[in-house]
Design a protein around this nucleic acid. Structure first.
Lengths: 224, 224
DNA sequence: CGTCCCCTTGAGTTATTTCAACACTCGTGG
DNA sequence: CCACGAGTGTTGAAATAACTCAAGGGGACG
């Protein structure tokens, strides 16, 4: 189901918190937009759909995914509050995006952003920096998928998520084992076993399946 | 060995073919620069080195790589003639680059490019498009590394290289099995075995280890 | 209280790696 | 001209990391 198709009918757009419907794409680049709410696992946009909007997570967590025909799935990245996603070079989205948890997402029309970029070199440079940062994260993830073991993948994932969340001790995982597995190129069983291994080693504690206590960060650190 | 350190001493800079030392970073964005020649396996720049230059392949092939401390290596991408690489958001390179084959590479000072981007929205947008295209290719590669089998990886690689080269029947591989393996997250033995499998299946022919004849593209196509 | 979904754990399987040996190519030097 | 050695690629056999299949546990929610 395409969330956009519903937009004119389900009036879920609301003004942005920071004033007159303005969305801050990057520091100093505010554009007209609106906020939509998505529930868990609801699609934000689909592969091959027109890329009419650019998105920024206000609250909650999203994921961008690619599928093979036989159903194998790769979760390219998780988007945390503040992250921008769905910005494309062409006219269609090349992957789909869904809400991992209930989400508020700010939308800005791609055409509005494009116009700002065409007019204003500063805006264009800020958007470039966003894309370049995303490229950096993606290349880091290439190394993880290409050359790290299951334990290193899970360890790297927990550390990087805790850094992005700013939570240094207790880490609440918003996503399922299945999401983690498809992000790390593993199966849910391997993710689960690896977590259990870390618990046995005393590297982490599991208050619940979704609540991790980081006890010895060094034990999770890999030889990067 | 750092190629830049040598630059003042080994005068390898030569004027660009297209006139007054101008390097075409993208269509319509020409900046002052110069050309350097690298021999096979010579380092173009190293991880953590100052990112003083941006590079564009004139002839030959380069690779960008990341290393883990224990020597495991991930080849992020191969750069073919016309490809731009080494453009960073920060002040240092986050991976190293080496020549896969003897190369002519055009260099433009990062500061020169930055100035053009700051001054000129069109330039900034063209550079954004370059980075966004690189991100697209990198995300495609995520799917390969995360979810494809060895045969699918090698098949995808051969097809994508042939498309980039514009060579639809005979494909000359400029890189070693080791480079291919580290790009595809496999070992050299698995790459070799997979190629042999394709030969036995009649999907390709191997005139030599580095010269592939694509016989049945369909047999290499994966369920993407 | 039952049901569903998510997660965990165990046992057996398999794709890929590891280790080892051998073949081929190419340049050098006898 | 051929022998030699180094680098690169191929192939086989054994080992293993991760997967698959299957069963059971636990929490949330009606």
């Amino acid at each position: 189901m395409n969330a956009h198709a519903m937009q004119p009918f389900t009036v879920r757009a609301t003004p942005c918190a920071d004033g007159a419907n303005l969305v801050e794409i990057s520091p100093g680049l505010r554009l007209q937009g609106f906020v939509m709410t998505f529930e868990e696992n609801e699609e934000v946009f689909g592969e091959e759909e027109p890329a009419d909007f650019v998105y920024k997570v206000v609250s909650g967590v999203c994921r961008t995914t690619r599928l093979l025909r036989d159903g194998r799935r790769q979760v390219s990245a998780f988007q945390l509050p503040g992250d921008v996603f769905g910005l494309e070079r062409g006219v269609t989205h090349r992957r789909s995006a869904e809400a991992v948890s209930p989400c508020d997402v700010a939308l800005v029309r791609s055409s509005v952003l494009r116009r700002a970029m065409d007019r204003d070199a500063l805006a264009a440079n800020q958007v470039w920096a966003l894309t370049a940062a995303e490229l950096e994260r993606t290349e880091e993830h290439l190394l993880l998928l290409g050359r790290k073991t299951a334990a290193e993948r899970v360890g790297s994932f927990l550390l990087s998520l805790s850094q992005r969340c700013g939570s240094f001790r207790t880490l609440d995982l918003p996503m399922s084992r299945s999401d983690i597995a498809d992000h790390l190129g593993l199966t849910i069983e391997t993710v689960s076993r690896t977590m259990s291994l870390f618990v046995r080693q005393g590297a982490i504690g599991l208050e619940s399946a979704r609540c991790v206590v980081l006890k010895h960060r060094d034990a999770l650190t890999d030889p990067s």
